[in-house]
Amino acid sequence: MRPSLPLLALALGSTALPALADEVNVYSHRQPELIQPLVDAFTAETGIDVNVAFVDKGMAERLVAEGDRSPADLVLTVDIARLMQVVDAGVTQAVTSDVLAANIPAEFRDPAGQWFGLTTRARIVYASKERVADGEVTTYEDLASDKWKGRICTRSGTNDYNVALVGAVIAHKGEDAAKGWLEGVKANLAKKPDGGDRDQVKAIWAGECDISLGNTYYMGQMVSDPEQKAWADSVRIVFPTFEGGGTHMNISGVAMTKAAPNREAALKLMEWLSSDEAQRIYAETNHEFPVKPGVARSALVQGWGEFTPDSLNLAEIAAQRAAALKLVETVDFDG
């Protein structure tokens, strides 16, 4: 068997991936080191090589430019917003699979079969162990309460993760209520939005704020980094809920390109990524939750506690992306 090509960093060149028999070509938002364990396991089991190109930005634009000549069979993204950007660009195709339908809950896949979730993560609150009491954080709606004035840190409101959260607020409450909520959260910020989710936890550790919005998997990344472990140790994860709902979820996901020169092999990879083995590898490598029911979380992730995921279909959240971004800009959240 011919060995796999090395993982490619797209930023280093624009050479297209080769489309050869018994291979799958993937454009991925995920860093190569986070995909390699899956690639190795799939190839060992099936004999199908997987070539991965890391595409940090401009994936949809690249696929549009390549058109029918694109060598890419699949795209992997880190959230529903970027997944929908590719779908909305018209460069994906619908996939019908009994395996995917059985393994992936309906709320984490497109009803039309254009995209499928592979892992989930929660958009939670990191709370100071010293300055925030147990039970003080309850709902997302509560983040607009005056009791949090000057106590909240967050990354930019235009970041995809926050836009998805605002989209969920719109889906639950409507645009008017979402605008009022966003204005309330802005009024409670301790400082201007800046940096990433881990930077907000660092700010809590430094005493600049008491709580922050963040994705769960960043805790796994911080505890694994000697320079950041102290930040992680200063906070605990709290799973807020929507009033009448659950904790906001997002996904990493996959879609098949319209061009897909290796469609049969690509479908095998998609189905395999929803299997018990792949779900375990993917979730443990990325500190995320398996999307397939019944697959155990890693010991670290289990230690964060139990919660009730929101049942809102991600397709509904994705449909609110434009409205959510407009609200963020209207209230000048980052100003």
Rank of each mutant, 00 (worst) to 15 (best):
P226T: 06
I237V: 15
I211G: 00
S298H: 06
P290E: 15
S252P: 01
L273Y: 04
H248S: 07
E243Q: 13
G244S: 04
G207C: 03
E271W: 08
K292Q: 08
P293K: 06
W205V: 04
V223Y: 00
L273P: 02
A230S: 09
T257S: 05
G245I: 05
A259Q: 06
A278C: 11
M256W: 02
V238S: 02
A299E: 06
G214F: 01
E243M: 10
V295D: 01
M270R: 10
A299L: 09
P290K: 14
M249N: 01
I237L: 15
M249H: 00
W272Y: 12
V254P: 05
M256V: 03
M270C: 13
Y217N: 14
E284Q: 15
M219I: 13
Q228C: 10
R297I: 06
E208A: 12
D210W: 07
A259W: 01
A299K: 14
W205R: 11
H248N: 08
W231A: 03
M222C: 03
E208H: 07
V201G: 06
A299R: 14
V301S: 03
L213V: 06
L300C: 04
N215R: 09
G207T: 05
E271Q: 15
A232M: 13
K268R: 15
E208M: 05
V235G: 01
R297D: 03
Y217M: 14
A278D: 10
E277N: 13
M219N: 03
